[in-house]
Simulated scan of single mutants.
Amino acid sequence: MTSRFHSFSDRATLASTLAETVAAALRSGIQARGTATLAVSGGSTPKGFFEALSDLELAWDKVTITLVDERFVPADNARSNHLLVATHLLKNKAAAANFLPLYRDTATAGEAAEAVTAEMASLALPFDVVILGMGTDGHTASFFPGGDHLAQSLDLTLPRRVLTMEAEGAGEPRLTFSFSALADARLLALHIEGAEKKTVLDAALAGTDESELPVRAPLNRAATPVDIYWAP
């Protein structure tokens, strides 16, 4: 699979360009199917992109936003991706969007995964837009090196679902969409910033071992070519 590399001189320009691209894809989805779906990632990298996207004009009430992955922590926890999205994206014009959280107030992460998987039936899939991030360990979504469910999460023959992931580098137990749920998004982007992540990306593009650098799975096997957005 051929990825497309988009390089920007600064992070603000990347954020505004990616926001306009995503908004256009969502508008196309709404025009074609009446609704659109967007799955986003957490961490510090997407904050500027979220802020830019939140102020763009589109029929946000027809958009459902969800998370590519989430820590099994409540929405008011400082490490929650839900809190990040609520703070930086679900505001301004985008306040009208629908939000599908991954965390649920269940006894276990597994029960939360089952609940969200059942709710996925209401989404118009494939996703219109999926925005992936990447850690310096080469993880994307919650596909962590050494993850207890890594092989299952990357298996494209298994149905779309949310599953749990525990790994030494993950901190809390995680909830993550399966690769099969993300791989055929109409727009599939990888948003990374900084020299260190560019080095990891170059290593990922140079090899094939997904257990070493799981980001290789979307780069090499996604049905949709990955658009890589990078700024120093």
Rank of each mutant, 00 (worst) to 15 (best):
A96P: 08
P126L: 02
V162G: 08
R174P: 00
E119G: 10
A183N: 14
T164I: 05
D184P: 06
S28M: 15
G135W: 01
L190K: 01
R160A: 15
E212V: 11
P214W: 04
A222G: 04
E111W: 07
P46A: 00
P46K: 01
L53C: 06
S122P: 09
G194A: 04
T45L: 02
A189R: 05
T64D: 01
V130C: 01
G146A: 09
N77F: 07
D10F: 09
E57A: 14
K91E: 02
I228E: 03
A78S: 14
F5V: 02
E212Q: 12
L53N: 07
F50K: 07
P101L: 07
L132V: 03
L89D: 02
M165E: 09
A121N: 10
W60E: 00
T117G: 06
T2S: 13
G138I: 06
P159Y: 08
A59T: 07
S16E: 11
G146W: 10
A86C: 12
T106E: 13
A59D: 14
G34T: 02
Y103M: 07
T208G: 10
D227Y: 13
A75V: 13
S3C: 14
A203W: 05
T13L: 09
W60P: 00
P145Q: 10
H191P: 10
I228L: 05
R221D: 11
M120S: 12
L125N: 09
Q31A: 15
P46R: 02
G147I: 04
A36E: 01
D227V: 10
L83F: 00
R186L: 06
T87M: 03
D184W: 07
L123W: 06
T157R: 09
D184A: 12
T117I: 02
F127V: 01
T87N: 08
R216Q: 10
S80H: 09
K62A: 10
T136V: 10
V226Q: 02
L100H: 01
S9C: 02
A24K: 08
L158G: 15
D69H: 00
P232H: 12
L38Y: 06
E114D: 15
A222K: 05
A195S: 10
L58C: 08
E114A: 15
L56Y: 14
D137E: 09
K93M: 10
T208F: 04
S28F: 13
S153G: 14
E111K: 11
D105G: 04
T106S: 12
A23M: 06
T17N: 14
F143C: 07
E20S: 15
T2L: 14
Y229K: 03
H82D: 06
A86L: 12
R104P: 02
R71L: 01
F127S: 03
F144D: 02
I65S: 04
H6Q: 13
T164E: 11
F143S: 06
R216D: 12
Y229R: 00
S28A: 15
T108A: 03
A75E: 11
L18W: 11
L132G: 00
D61G: 12
A94K: 08
G48R: 06
R4W: 13
A206K: 03
G42P: 13
R27T: 12
L90N: 03
F72V: 02
A23V: 07
F72N: 08
A203C: 12
A39M: 09
A86M: 14
G146F: 08
K91V: 08
E212N: 11
E70N: 07
S7G: 10
K62T: 08
V63G: 03
K93G: 09
F143N: 05
P101C: 09
S178Y: 04
D10V: 05
A109V: 07
N81V: 03
